[in-house]
Amino acid sequence: MMVVPGHGCRVWRHGNKIRVENIDGKPIFVSDGVRAWDFTGRSDRPLVGLPDRVIYLGPGQFLLHRRTTAEWTGNDFAQPVGDVEVAEFAGRHCWTVQLAPPEGKPYPLRIWVDVDSGQMLGYLVEEVGEGSQFVDLAVGETLDEGLFV
């Protein structure tokens, strides 16, 4: 299942449960942690599958998909360049670091990770100004379980 969110979306996450909507409120992707629904085709008949079989592509992909341990051991934006620094980002206390690019890509990727939740809040290729980030962020709020079904 491939989910390709466009520019600007709303995201709710609670553990392995996630809901992604277009800005207009139409669902793009929903998972209750056991099943996943892809609404990018026919919204009245979403594709249904297992969450671990979902591939995110496009803007915001690094924010919507938590990387596995195996993905952090490779060389695709996985190795730090320099020290991890403390910074405020999106109104949250974060760690930030640049990650070395894989062979064939010219620039490193800077990421910001929320200290309290471990959620990546933003990333940026500073040399070209390309990236994505959460805005209007709320952490720790109670969420309606109906968001994820």
Rank of each mutant, 00 (worst) to 15 (best):
E71I: 03
Y56P: 03
D76T: 12
E71V: 04
E71D: 15
G82F: 13
N75A: 13
R45Q: 13
H65R: 15
H65N: 14
G74S: 04
D44I: 11
F77M: 02
R45M: 11
V48N: 06
R66D: 14
T68H: 03
Y56H: 05
L63W: 04
Q79D: 05
R45H: 13
N75P: 00
A70F: 01
Q61Y: 10
G49D: 02
V54H: 00
Q61E: 15
G49N: 02
T73D: 07
L64M: 06
R45C: 07
V54Y: 02
D76G: 01
R66K: 13
L64E: 00
W72L: 14
T69M: 04
R67H: 08
I55D: 12
D44G: 06
A78C: 06
D52K: 03
Y56N: 01
A78N: 04
R66L: 10
G58C: 07
V81W: 05
F77L: 04
G82S: 10
G82R: 08
L47K: 12
Q61P: 08
D76M: 10
P46F: 00
R67S: 12
G58S: 08
I55P: 05
V54W: 03
R53Y: 01
L47M: 09
P46Q: 07
P80H: 08
I55H: 13
A70L: 12
T73W: 05
G60L: 11
P80K: 08
T69H: 07
Y56D: 00
V81N: 03
T73S: 12
G49M: 00
T73K: 12
R53G: 05
L57V: 13
A78G: 05
L47S: 10
G82D: 11
D44M: 10
I55R: 14
P46H: 04
D44H: 08
E71T: 06
P80V: 10
L63A: 09
Q61W: 09
L50S: 14
L57G: 15
R66E: 15
W72N: 13
Q61A: 15
N75K: 07
G74I: 02
L47F: 09
G74E: 01
D44L: 11
D52W: 02
G60I: 09
V81I: 13
V48I: 14
R66T: 13
T69R: 08
T69C: 01
V81Y: 05
V54R: 02
P51L: 04
G60A: 12
V54C: 01
I55T: 15
T73G: 00
T69D: 09
R67M: 12
P51C: 06
G82M: 10
P59N: 12
D44Y: 08
Q79C: 05
T73Y: 05
W72S: 14
A70Y: 00
D76H: 14
P59R: 08
L47V: 06
D52N: 08
G82N: 10
P46V: 06
V54A: 01
L47C: 00
Q79A: 10
T68I: 04
H65W: 07
Y56Q: 01
L63G: 05
G82I: 11
R67L: 13
